[in-house]
């Protein structure tokens, strides 16, 4: 079983990202489960969403305490919350950032990867310039760095599930897939 935690801020689309990622794995015949942090969500406040993937039916229904991989939609969260909490050794931390992986000094123990998803999203006019919607872009990068899911599955999930500008979202995913820095 693979467990993934996605960090974002309320309104950034972390929950949708978790659903899209689950969809992508579902398209490859996996059993999936995705859920938000249980409770109330406020715009701008730190939130998390989760994905479980397995080859057999997923029975466990507890929270995810020791994720295999982490996705961070907003680099400012690195200082606000402990995004690495429970991360299994060898797991990836994928960050939406303009910085280089080595610049995240306090994450040295982990495999860090970055993609400028904000820039990609803004160029594809997803959301607004000040608040780009980065969730679809970063999933493309996730497919690349982990190799767990095919980019075509991600693109298919994005194309089917995103109600507004699906084409542009798919392009953003693809671009992130190609430009992610490992």
């Amino acid at each position: 079983m693979i467990e993934i935690r996605i960090h974002g801020r309320g309104g950034q689309g972390a929950v949708i990202a978790s659903k899209l990622l689950a969809m992508a794995f579902f398209k490859e015949g996996k059993f999936v489960q995705s859920f938000p942090t249980f409770g109330v969500e406020r715009r701008g406040a730190p939130v998390a969403a989760f994905v479980r993937i397995d080859d057999k039916q997923i029975l466990v229904r507890s929270q995810i305490y020791e994720p295999d991989h982490i996705i961070v939609l907003d680099p400012t969260l690195i200082d606000a919350v402990d995004v690495t909490q429970g991360l299994k050794p060898g797991g990836w931390i994928l960050i939406n950032s303009t910085q280089k992986p080595e610049e995240f000094g306090n994450l040295k123990k982990f495999k860090v990867s970055v993609v400028d998803a904000s820039d990609i999203a803004a160029r594809h006019r997803l959301g607004s310039k000040s608040h780009p919607i980065v969730n679809t872009a970063i999933l493309g990068a996730f497919a690349k760095i982990t190799g767990l899911v095919k980019i075509d599955s991600v693109l298919a999930a994005v194309g089917e599930e995103v109600p507004v500008h699906p084409e542009e979202n798919m392009k953003a995913s693809k671009e992130a897939y190609e430009s992610v820095v490992v």
Binding site: K19, Q33, S34, F35, F38, G39, I58
Partner: peptide, 11 residues
Amino acid sequence: DAFILSHTYEI
């Protein structure tokens, strides 16, 4: 169940 089913996506 609240959230565990209501807000959880599965197949």
